[in-house]
Write a protein that binds this DNA or RNA. Structure first.
Lengths: 177, 177
DNA sequence: CTGAACGCTTCACAGGCTCGAAACAGCGGC
DNA sequence: GCCGCTGTTTCGAGCCTGTGAAGCGTTCAG
């Protein structure tokens, strides 16, 4: 969009949380980029490739905001956006294995090897830990899906079907506890 | 910084989580902005006002992202926003260690070394001091979270779950006094 | 079609361990 | 002395983990 000619449209887009690229006419001062991180600008005249790069950058920001990737640090803290949970050792290792193949199926055997590098306990232990992990991850809107006889898969829950848990588990950061 | 001439410096800055503005030489294709949101670029030649606008935009992003961080001065006074508390020596050193890794886990051993540089006392002393530190920090809306079997983590409490303590301890000031 | 086998979920429980909290005592400064 | 800072002891609560067992839907053999 042109700017400042189309200031009205800019505000409309901001209200709708839409990304926008301001094309600056020659001679006008640069705008103050609004704080929602979905805005960028470039001064005309500009090369097509530069404009495209700005658009791509904006697009990438939108993606990054919509699908943040969970990160597990070395201390067993799993972070996603502004929230985090602390994971006990076994579950931290299981989560690391699931995160290695985020969004894809991880076999039960692989999880067993990841969770217990020095020999697995009874075969039920894994099932129970997956249950516990499910509950621990639900405040982060992460879900572990079962793929029958294949393994498990970690994915992000859509905003629509997030459970609102009235059961404040311990060690939940930011809006918990 | 120049780009792509100074690509090495760019990576260094990214590792250090420092913001950076890439000044594109004429003719080179625009870069793919890295995902940490602390990067921007502009093609040379550019008006000084445009470059300044980019820098300001970056600066604003940094401010918006960094939660206001508490500051501990050499006299054991911990300040956050308009409030402050005074900390006794041991707790000041512990707080300094937690602040060094603000928002991340600090191991019990690291805290022991920080709090008692000349040999630690009994192992329970640390627990007790963490308890006392918790109480001292709560008026500042700072919380020390336990990450079981890993260590402790200092973070800011969300406005929602701030306890309203009616326990006016000594040496707690509020912008005046 | 029917029933057994299988795969997964969920609960309840016990042992071991970590951490929280209070009470108490020594020390030092004002 | 009074009060705050520090360290110790002690007790109890809660967490982590593995095991057994019940429940339920699907798959498969007869």
């Amino acid at each position: 969009m042109r700017w400042p000619a189309e200031e009205g449209q800019r505000s409309d887009l901001q209200r709708a949380s839409h990304p926008r690229l301001l094309l600056l006419e020659d001679g006008v001062p640069p705008p103050v980029v609004r704080s929602d991180e979905l805005e960028d600008w470039i001064r005309l005249p500009a090369a097509e490739v530069d404009i495209q790069a700005r658009v791509d950058g904006l697009r990438r920001r939108v993606e990054a905001r919509a699908h943040p990737m969970p990160a597990l640090d070395d201390d067993g803290v799993l972070r996603l956006a502004d929230d985090w949970v602390s994971l006990p050792p076994v579950e931290a290792r299981l989560t690391a294995a699931l995160l290695d193949r985020y969004g894809a199926v991880v076999s039960r055997e692989a999880l067993g090897r990841a969770g217990w590098p020095t020999g697995a306990p009874g075969r039920n232990a894994l099932d129970v830990h997956m249950l516990r992990l499910r509950r621990r991850l639900s405040p982060l809107a992460l879900a572990i899906r079962t793929v029958r006889s294949r393994g498990y898969l970690l994915e992000r829950l859509a905003a629509a079907d997030r459970p609102v848990r009235a059961h404040p588990s311990n060690s939940v950061g930011s809006a918990g506890c």
